[in-house]
Amino acid sequence: MRLVTGLTQLPDEQVDDAPAGSAVRLVLGVVVVLSLVNAAIWFGLDASPRNRGYEVVAHKWELARDATAPVDLLLIGDSSCNQGIRPEVLGEAIGGTALNLCAIGSATTAHDAYLLAYYLEHVGRPRAIVVVHTWDTWQRDASKLRAMLWKIPVGSAAWAGRRPELTLSSRERFNANFGGLLPLYSQQISVRALLRSPRGGERIEFLPGGFMPMESPGNTAWLEGNLSEHVALVEHEAFTVSEWSRSGIDATLDLAAAAGVPVLLASAPAYERLAENPSFQAWEDGYEAFLNELAGRDGVSVLLGRPVPLPAEQLEKVDHPNPDGAAVYSRALADALRHTPLEPVAPR
């Protein structure tokens, strides 16, 4: 029986003769096919984007690049601010203009520093800077930021000289330079999502000042699940600041001080059921103490030391307001801003 013979034999390698150049043709053929697949994915993701974080970061850098004159109030920070602060409300409070350049928590405080450095260098000095981060971004390291460098249009060479310094591996340098052109390589998770449902993604609509309105998901189970995750976090861990986040905020404050721009620090909004949790309050005590420590520097003050509690119907996630919640949070910040003098500080 051929099957028995086939299964009992010891297989071997037999190499046939091949026409000259066939290996080169084979490699080139593979490169061409992969290039076509990559192009198809590029168009697919452009029409139907899957990674909200990439879109946010890219949009905020576009806003910074397109700015022709500095605003009065520049907002930098994470998603709680990106989805939580309507810049026009804050601008109105100080009788000027405002721009929301807040991105996402995974970009870390270092991203604030990079974006601020770019803004100061290419656009100019705002009257004041507001920095907003939610309670759990301070623990993060640079790993997620490294994966999204290709969305930041400054080129990999810029990273080494910037503060906080980001030393890139050869893979990360390649990704920072070519990731945008090679989604097959740089956007693994988005490509998987695209393959699962080719028409499943949608483009985010930003408002002109950089605010990203985000509606609630339509059921409370999502929010409750998100609440459980955060409760588990605050019950098992205490508030800490990673070395990376520390260097990020230090670099931001130093940049502002060098430019003579005052900095206002604010805590993010929080789901009211989380805000009532004693473990969360203990966590927030640590966070507030940290903000007060930063406020010890010249030109740095705390705008909101505790989170603004929001009900379920005003939230998308426990720290992400929907447009209604954003209005409430923005008003709270605007009220605080009205009572805060925005005196320029002597440049260092």
Binding site: L7, Q14, V15, A18
Partner: peptide
């Protein structure tokens, strides 16, 4: 295993 040939893919059309 059945072909006894570990490099059978090299014998496919280019």
């Amino acid at each position: 295993q059945l072909r006894g040939d570990l490099l059978w893919t090299t014998r496919l059309r280019p």
